[in-house]
Structure formats: C-alpha cells, structure tokens
Simulated assay, not measured.
Amino acid sequence: MTPSGERVYRPPAAISVHQILSGLRRGGSDPCFRTTPGGPVRRATRTPDGPALLLVTSRPSAGEVEATAWGPGADWVLDGLPLLLGDHDEPAAFKPRPEHPRLVEAWRAHRGYRIPRTRAVFEALAPAVLEQRVTGQEAWRAWRVLVTRYGEPAPGPEGDGMFVPPDPAGWRQIPSWVWLKAGVDEARRRALLSAARVAGRLEQTVGLPHDEAERRLRSLPGIGVWTAAEVRQRAHGDPDAFSWADFHVSRNVSWALSGQVLDDAGCAELIECYRGQRYRVQKLLELGGNMRPRRAPRMTLPTHLPR
C-alpha cells in the first residue's frame, strides 16, 4: 500500500525517539505499539479523521526524524509529529539540584528525552482506566484482549498484526460478559464507559491550562488524581503531571532523592522544589532505573473472574 503521507522533522536539539515514545506503550505485547532496538517505532492510533499507522525512524547522523503514515488519519498524525516528539517541551527550564545525585545522573544520561503530546485524550484515558487498582500485567492483558477483539487492523503494510483502538462508540458496544472475561471489574468498566459518552468534550481539553485540564478530567466519575495524571502526561504533555496515588512512584522517587521510602505526602514535600517539572523528575528517574529495593514476595495474581 502506498503511504498516505511522509514527513521529515528536524528537532532543534538531539532527541531520543525511543525514550520519548516509550511511555505510550502499554506492556510488551501492546497491539498498538511496536518497536525494535535501533529500529523504527510503529504506533497505531485513532485520529479525528480516522485510523492511522505512524512509522517513526530516527536519523541522528542527519539530525532529523523521518515519519511515514498510512490511513485516513495520516495527515493528522504527521502534522502532530513535532508535538508527539516534544517540540512544545522546554527541558531547559529544568535544573536538578546537586543534593540529588541520582537525578543529576539521570538528567545527564537522558538529555534527549522530551515529554510527548499525543493530543488524543480519550485514547490515553481508556488504558489508564484499565490500569486502576490492578497490576500492570492484569491491565495490559485486558487492553490487549479488548483492543484486538473490538479495534480494527492498523492500515498499511507496516501494521501487520497491529490494531487501532476502538473509538468511543466501539468501547460502549462491548458486551458486559466480555469485560468480565478480560478481567475488568464493574467500577473500571463504568468509568471507561462514562468517559466514552463525553469523549468529544475530553478532546477539547488539549491546549487548556494544565490545571483546568486536570479539573475537567477529574470531574468525570471514576477519574481521580492518578488517572488524570496518566492522561496529562501523554495527551497534554504536562511536565508537572506527577503520578500521585500510585503504589510505587512516590516510594521510588523519594528513595532515589533521599534514600528514604516515603508516602505521597512525604514525597510531595521532597519534590516541591521541582514544582512545574515534577513529572519530568519522575520520568528521568524511571529512565535511569532508580527503583527502591523490594524484598517482599511478588503478589499472586488472581485466577478468578471479578464478581
């Protein structure tokens, strides 16, 4: 199939395409995302104009990024390529403090990281809702099951085996027993379907001030501080959207910065000096592999369907 469009983006400074787009992947077998070390990144997405497959190839020696797209939404994703790769981001506004050596090291090692902005709010919200209150493994399985069954094959020859997520109407048509079989409880199902009913208004939050975008997201039933942050990190490109109420994030960040494992309140006090850039702190430490020591046995995943 002939590509629907091609584009070349020349970022103002060297960037790491794989690091920037890594946060959009939902598990190692995400049907919407595919990459290989040193190779291009493929991302299947749904746009206001329809489905699209985007293939992004970094050419660091030439200082440019090549992108090819297929499908009705090709022009939309290509027009948004600079934002997807963090053209809006201002990493120069961030300066780690010398008393936080792990953060300084991560910042130096990942100078090519930028915070992406997909502009696809509902598409970021759906998997975030599936990840509420469960392990990543459980959530990623549910995402894979539902997308491959109710999404549609990605357009173009590079999308073999990949799928575009369902549109909001498609999510609403999934039978209740399928949600149950995918391991999604009633609370998460209701939250996702409530968001699907107002998906058009959710897309209007792109471009709003970050605090107003958060307020509107959290006005939805079942959408709290954590889920709103997950959406803002990806769809809005918010450098301050820290993942509060996550089981691990505050503990990992506080340990990396202070050597102490703290809860949300303690971590908030510790990273107040980075207000406006707190998600960048979280992501840089994550890229640097800064995880607190964990010696307890792994949680046993449930083997029964939710009631």
Rank of each mutant, 00 (worst) to 15 (best):
V253R: 07
G80V: 08
L257Y: 14
G23W: 11
D211K: 08
A235T: 04
T68N: 02
P116N: 02
R278K: 05
L53G: 15
A154L: 11
D211E: 15
F163M: 09
I115E: 07
A154C: 09
R278E: 04
E212Y: 12
G276E: 01
E138C: 13
P155W: 05
E158D: 15
R292D: 10
Q137V: 15
A241W: 09
P127F: 12
H210E: 15
H248I: 00
V8N: 05
G86M: 06
V225H: 12
V206E: 12
P168L: 00
T47A: 13
M299E: 13
P101F: 06
M1D: 14
R189F: 03
E212M: 14
C32Y: 06
M162I: 13
K181M: 10
H18P: 15
R102A: 11
I174D: 14
Y279C: 12
R251T: 10
Y9S: 09
H236A: 11
P116T: 02
R251V: 10
Q260G: 02
G224V: 00
Q260W: 10
G50H: 13
E123Q: 14
G86P: 01
H236V: 00
R59D: 11
H236P: 00
R7D: 11
G5V: 07
R232L: 15
H236M: 08
P116L: 01
W177L: 09
L301C: 12
M162Q: 08
A296K: 11
V56N: 05
P157E: 06
P82V: 05
E230G: 10
R218Y: 01
A199G: 07
V65Q: 06
T118L: 02
V281C: 03
A213C: 13
T148D: 04
V231N: 07
A235I: 10
I223A: 08
L24A: 14
I174K: 01
T300V: 11
G276S: 04
G259C: 09
P306W: 05
E286I: 01
D87F: 11
V198Y: 05
V41H: 02
R97H: 15
R43E: 09
R108C: 00
L180S: 00
P12W: 13
H210N: 14
